[in-house]
């Protein structure tokens, strides 16, 4: 098969995955509205299936492009959505509560819809992007952003759960606040570790490509801002016992910074990361 045929297949798989995430999002919403388990069960199955198709789409693009799909807005956005879904499925498997999907799938859908709006053209990489450090840098960013996405969704659940204390459905399907708080913390810890690696690997790559490991480029500066926001969150939590609502609000703010670092900086503050 030619690379063009692989890319055509990727296009179809991507569309199916996006439709799958949309369907899962709707079913999760129905699960919350009508409070029937059957919607939640099907939503979970469809999310897993969409994730499998999405994985296949990324594999076919890798084959079609002859490299990992991590080098432009479309590729990073689709990988970012994949990363959030992967983290969601891991947390779902570990902590086993279905309602999490109702908050994560909209984030996945928004990110993959953003990807769909970008150019899917496969371009050869400019010499600076031909580095193994790029693969490490962007792959770790996908995991990091995915984990922060999950912490954002869990924190939203935390904030909403407090207002739904009278609902038996919420009591049954959403873990108690203490547990939500812990899950959010676990997700932030994972995201923070990987975000640190994103910055370190990016610095090593920049040093080799441009001779400067840190140059206060807007993307670098905003990833530092995000890193500091989460560092403050962790310090307040570990040392000052800052938990509950305040921590949840902080995790939401952190994810807004993540989104600004990823999308906002490209739109409003272009620098040497403009291709990202």
């Amino acid at each position: 098969m030619s690379s063009d045929q692989f890319l055509q297949i990727e296009n179809v798989l991507f569309t199916i995955a996006m439709a799958g995430y949309l369907a899962a999002m709707v079913l999760y919403a129905l699960f919350l509205v009508f409070r029937k388990d059957v919607f939640g069960i099907w939503a979970g199955h469809i999310t897993a299936a969409a994730f499998a198709v999405h994985t296949a789409a990324l594999v076919t693009r890798t084959i079609g492009a002859g490299r990992l799909p991590l080098s432009n807005q479309y590729e990073f956005a689709t990988s970012f959505a994949w990363g959030i879904c992967a983290c969601f499925l891991i947390f779902l498997w570990k902590y086993r509560f279905r309602a999490l999907g109702a908050f994560v799938t909209p984030v996945i859908f928004i990110v993959i819809a953003y990807a769909a709006m970008q150019s899917k053209e496969v371009r050869e990489l400019m010499p600076a992007l031909r580095s193994n450090w790029l693969v490490l840098h962007v792959s770790s960013a996908i995991i990091s952003y995915g984990a922060f996405g999950v912490s954002f969704a869990v924190s939203l659940m935390f904030l909403i759960r407090g207002k739904m204390s009278g609902s038996t459905f919420w009591q049954e399907h959403v873990p108690e606040e203490k547990r939500l708080d812990l899950i959010s913390y676990r997700a932030v810890s994972l995201g923070f570790l990987f975000l640190t690696f994103v910055m370190v690997s990016g610095a090593i790559w920049a040093e080799r490509a441009w001779g400067s490991y840190w140059s206060w480029d807007p993307k670098e500066t905003w990833s530092l801002i995000t890193w500091i926001i989460y560092a403050i969150y962790l310090h307040l939590r570990i040392s000052k016992g800052w938990k509950g609502k305040s921590a949840a609000i902080f995790a939401v703010i952190g994810f807004i910074c993540v989104i600004f670092t990823y999308i906002g900086v490209n739109i409003f503050l272009p620098g040497i990361h403009s291709y990202a």
């Binding site: 807007p218 905003w222 530092l224 801002i225 500091i228 403050i232 900086v265």
Partner: peptide, 15 residues
Amino acid sequence: LILLGILVIACVAGS
């Protein structure tokens, strides 16, 4: 934490 907060503000201004 205060220093980190100021650093965030400085970074936002610088970007």
